[in-house]
Amino acid sequence: MSAPGVAVVYRWELRKLRSQKRTYLGLGAAAVVPVLFVTALVVQGGRSGPRDVAFGRYLHDTGLAVPLVLLLFGSIWMFPLITALVAGDIVAAEDHNGTLKTILTRSVERERIFAGKTLAAFSYAIAAIAITGVVALAAGIAASGLHPIISLSGTRVSSGRGLVLVGASLLVYLMPILAVACIGLLLSTVTRNSAAAVVGTLMVSLLLQLVGILPGLGALRPYLLSTQFDAWQGFLRTPIDWVPIVRAAWVCALYAVPALIAAGLVFLRRDVAGG
């Protein structure tokens, strides 16, 4: 008899997510926020919008600027919150429901359950970023058209290449997002309390941003998780600046891997005493 694998667990974790309202709360926000943002730009007309952030001044010139500005704003709390909404809940909710004991007395080993849950939490975060990216591009192009964009180096980037760079930026943006997901999983496993894990994950994310702006701690800045949310801007320089992107890869891993390993070890060894 061969025991069911991670794929089975993953598939059922996604089904569980699809059956819960909170899932649509996060994904709905990921879709609605870009629409509201673009609607506000159109209603206010003229040169409205945040002009003091990168690409803010091009919002009326090209739709390409919309997803980029949203990535900047979303990193403060929106994307960490959406990510934490599921990652912080995915283990703790089963504690709360008492269903952990139900699924841990079947034929699937604990490590596979954990792997399936991790993949499901990652998938959810990726879906949220993808939805925001696609909706923001579509809404932005509808409002401002698909036109060339001016890079951070002041060079003109064609709309075709701009699309590729926006896609690449979204991918790089996923690195800190997945690190946040790992922290959420750890808190979810350790606290056994969904609300505590979701809020805790958001707090960690906000605290790291706070450390980044404290005077005298500037040297830490490149190694903070919050800083890695800006790494994608390397793509919008000419030539592409790989330094922040490469650094984001290993700094994010430095946050994500220990958190994930700790979460996994706790999950494997913990007593399932609730419910």
Partner: peptide
């Protein structure tokens, strides 16, 4: 097989869906 304390299931899924989930985790 068995249960401890009251058996617990996913309240937002139907009885059959719950069993389908557990059957998937059982295989065989």
């Amino acid at each position: 097989a068995g249960f401890v304390e009251a058996p617990r299931f996913y309240p937002y899924l139907t009885g059959r869906k719950n069993l389908e989930l557990l059957a998937a985790l059982d295989g065989d």
